[in-house]
Amino acid sequence: MVIPVHDVNPVRRTPWVTYALIAANVVVFLRTPGAVTSPAGGAGPVELCQPQAFMAHWGAVPRELIHDAVPSLVPTGTAAIGPRGPGCLLAPPGYTKSPPLSVLTAMFVHASWLHLLGNMLFLWIFGNNIEDRLGRLRYLGFYLLCGYAAAYGFALADADSATPLVGASGAIAGVLGAYLVLYPRARVWSLVPFLFFIPLRLPAWVVLGLWFVLQAFYSAGYGLSGAGTVAYLAHVAGFVVGALLAVPLRGGTRRPPPRPGLASRW
């Protein structure tokens, strides 16, 4: 897979909303149980159950979204020994949860450092230009709308799933879709795997087009035998919605040149 590291696409203003979204995602991750000391090796049941309970509380569960109801029993952070061995104790939820609101909270919850850093890399590279084009408030609304479209799109396709959806990738996929529509010829420095990683400057339509094709391919169940934990269909839904929302902006007036010293960051 091609890994983007920097785009050559100047902006006019500092992308404060993009920076704030990245900061919020990092802060929430650092407050996630088990985030700093990722479970590995000798992690016990409690260390595994606490993150699971956190995801169930703050994640978006497809079955809850479709039926607009929270189940009577949810995972807790307490380990238990059952007929099939150690597991997480189920109990009535000790909290009030709104399934529609859980889509918003899920956008800021990540399951691992790799999950977080991968999402924030894409947001860092491509978010500033979309924020620059839309303006700060419209960009924030656009980002959240794409996140909701991704979550509900996935939920409609897998309405019985009880696995929580977490992560900003659905909303960020919408940003990528808009970037492809608005700046298809922008150059993106990327690492291309060929024996080892080779840095190449590629047009955005190649980088993001390939990304979208891979997501669609994986969402159909091809290519990765262990891809069940990644909601590729949510990525596809967010990307398509972001691209469609950006289509009316293609015919807009050309942007003025950027102020000196402001450029796309990486």
Rank of each mutant, 00 (worst) to 15 (best):
V236F: 06
S112C: 06
L191R: 08
V207K: 15
P164N: 07
W113F: 06
A173H: 04
H67W: 00
T37R: 14
G177E: 10
A155K: 01
Y148S: 06
F29T: 01
S219Y: 04
G242N: 07
V36C: 04
A151C: 09
V17A: 13
V175Y: 00
P51I: 02
L210G: 15
T37F: 07
F194E: 12
A151I: 01
L134H: 07
V166Q: 04
A171K: 10
A237I: 10
P199G: 01
H6F: 05
R201F: 00
L180M: 13
H67E: 14
V230S: 07
Y139S: 09
P10L: 06
L73G: 01
L137C: 11
P184D: 00
P86T: 04
G127S: 06
V17F: 11
P75N: 04
P193C: 04
R254E: 14
L249I: 06
H235F: 08
W205C: 10
V206K: 13
I66N: 05
G261N: 13
A111C: 08
R31S: 10
G226K: 13
L89M: 13
L210K: 09
H67S: 11
R254C: 12
S112N: 09
W16Y: 07
D7P: 03
S190Y: 02
Y222G: 05
P164L: 00
V188G: 02
R138W: 14
R255S: 14
I125M: 04
A35H: 09
G41W: 08
R254N: 13
R133H: 14
P257C: 03
C146E: 05
L30E: 10
Q52D: 08
P83V: 03
A23P: 02
C49S: 01
F217N: 05
